[in-house]
Simulated scan of single mutants.
Amino acid sequence: MLCPGIQELIQDATRSRFTIVLAEAMDRFSHDQEDITGLFKRMTFSGAQIPRETPHICISGSRAP
């Protein structure tokens, strides 16, 4: 079962509040592969994307190694 924050993320996606979701790693969504697959399916249906590879971004302004 997805945590309340992820459930809210899905609801916001269906309301078109965003078009892309970035995460440090896929396990930030869930440790259960079935949950992650379902999340991808719901996000895709809602028009939001979850890129499987994202660049390392440092909020201090410098790029992480």
Rank of each mutant, 00 (worst) to 15 (best):
Q33T: 13
C58Y: 04
F29A: 03
E24Q: 03
M26R: 07
E53Q: 12
H31P: 14
V21F: 00
F40L: 06
I50S: 04
M26K: 04
D32V: 09
Q33S: 15
L2C: 05
G5P: 11
T54G: 13
P51H: 06
G47F: 00
T44E: 14
F18T: 00
T54K: 06
I10R: 04
Q11V: 10
M43S: 04
F18H: 07
H31N: 15
D32M: 10
F29W: 02
S30L: 01
T37V: 13
T44V: 07
G38V: 03
P55M: 11
H31C: 13
M43K: 03
T14V: 13
S30Q: 03
A64Q: 14
I6C: 08
S30K: 03
K41T: 08
G38H: 04
R28T: 05
S46M: 10
I57N: 08
T37D: 07
F40V: 02
S62V: 10
C58R: 12
Q7H: 13
I20D: 15
S16I: 11
S60G: 05
D32G: 07
I57A: 14
G61P: 00
Q11N: 15
A23G: 15
G61C: 01
R15F: 07
L22W: 08
E53M: 12
A13N: 03
V21M: 02
L2P: 10
A64P: 12
A64V: 09
R28Q: 15
F29K: 05
S46F: 02
M1F: 01
M1P: 03
T14P: 04
T44Y: 14
L2I: 02
F45E: 15
R52S: 11
S46P: 01
A25V: 01
R17Y: 04
G47V: 01
R17N: 14
I36A: 12
I6Y: 00
F40C: 04
K41F: 09
D32K: 10
C58P: 08
M1C: 10
P4C: 05
P55S: 08
S46L: 00
P55A: 08
P4Y: 02
R17E: 06
D27T: 05
H56A: 12
I59Q: 04
